[in-house]
Design a protein around this nucleic acid. Structure first.
Lengths: 247, 247
DNA sequence: GGCCTTTTTTCCACGATGCGGAAAGGATCA
DNA sequence: TGATCCTTTCCGCATCGTGGAAAAAAGGCC
């Protein structure tokens, strides 16, 4: 059993295998050959072939006969879009993210805590290289991103939110500092060349619902700039909070 | 056998059923109850439950215990995003779409011909109501959208493109007009209150690869405005073409 | 709170179907 | 051209997916 493998009690093995193949397709930049994906999934080529052609029949997967590679298909994209529509604040956040990007000239991000991790929902990229740890649809442990840290601090303030992730991921002094400043700084624990400044957005119940950030290369997101960027992000988060509160 | 049901030769039934459930989840605004989705899929509740919990175990589906509704999950979104990355022109198109939206104050779209239909890959919405026939991830028959019409005209000019959709969907005079103008107009065959002006983007082989458009309410996208909008869209498409050609 | 109805979840035996090895066909490369 | 590898098809077996039934949970009404 691999790390992160779902428990198999009561699940349909063939469906689970097909989903695993979809995940592998998703991670395969430039597509992947049948024998390679079968090997990666631990299946025989003929089994993988049958599962892939089943996914292909509804266009969750696609086959490129020229390169003989398999890819994620359009239906996966269409289905995935409906996930975004559930998070209704995404649409409201877009103009704010754009303005944030324009003001700072760095990449602007929207993320939410989903299943205990920071999940990137939207991203308005800057023109600079070195933009962010991961793109739309990517995920990170909360404590390794600015948005995650900001959310952890917001959860820590909420003594009654028993569903929040464990606060022990960040020290009490870090949490206190984030709360006091109104923004969190990620100083590149994962990638030392990237920095991020983030602030939390609250919903109509004053519950933390997501976070926004700007991220960019460490030499641009400098110490001299942090206070200014923090204030800009904090104000943008407040604006998004007030928009969401009106719904 | 329902209309549009994929042929079942050599496919795995349980996987096909699970994919069908995902599609139904995608179409269910506000989530859906187990018994309802089971009914829609023609499965017993216990079968649907097991397939859904299998999808849930890898987070392709999610269950809201408060409302007791099933939804599309985050992994579907993550996997779907990799479909976009395959169409590398999407990223290059974004700033152009934004500028297009800003100049015209209408919704800007990027679409491609995928499996014979017009598939919407990106969309920068305007602040107006009445924006476009469908959103990101949606699909339409080519002849019913401006982008599709523009692509049909481009395919018609390419006598050697044996993989293009049938040209008989539009009249010869329509195709000729679109080619001459450099843009196509959708005058609301599906929705009389919506209009669209679109132009084709070419890749480095001078092959039509996608189209961009602006769309909005018919009373705003007026006859008086068409020529001007057409020229703007055509120029934006040319710009995107030249960017893509450099890769 | 009790009762009724509906929904959701769990269980289990049976047979349908998923599996993978083998064979056939196809593609690539030296 | 021949060798090698990849992809697709075939088929028999036994695994596992199925759905009815039962149990548990939830919601609504009086």
């Amino acid at each position: 059993m691999e790390n992160g493998e779902p428990q198999d009690g009561g699940t349909v093995q063939s469906v689970d295998r097909a989903m695993r193949l979809l995940e592998l397709l998703s991670g395969a930049t430039g597509g992947i050959r049948l024998t390679q994906i079968a090997r990666n999934a631990g299946l025989s080529p003929s089994t993988a072939h049958r599962l892939l052609t089943t996914l292909e029949s509804r266009r969750f997967a696609q086959y490129d006969p020229l390169k003989r590679t398999w890819h994620v298909g359009q239906t996966a994209f269409s289905v995935g879009q409906s996930f975004v529509h559930r998070h209704a604040y995404s649409a409201a956040a877009l103009p704010i993210l754009r303005r944030l990007r324009n003001e700072t000239r760095e990449t602007a991000n929207l993320g939410a805590c989903i299943d205990g991790d920071l999940f990137v929902l939207e991203q308005i990229p800057s023109r600079e290289i070195e933009k962010s740890l991961c793109g739309v649809g990517g995920r990170l442990p909360l404590q390794y991103s600015g948005m995650g840290k900001a959310l952890l601090a917001a959860f820590a303030k909420d003594q009654w939110n028993s569903e929040g992730p464990s606060r022990s991921r960040l020290s009490a002094s870090s949490l206190a500092q984030i709360s006091e400043q109104g923004f969190a700084v990620d100083n590149g624990e994962i990638n030392p060349d990237l920095r991020c400044v983030a602030s939390v957005v609250y919903d109509h119940r004053s519950e933390p619902c997501c976070a926004i950030s700007i991220s960019g290369a460490a030499h641009r997101v400098s110490d001299a700039r942090i206070e200014q960027l923090g204030a800009i992000v904090r104000d943008a988060a407040s604006e998004l909070t007030s928009i969401i509160s009106r719904h």
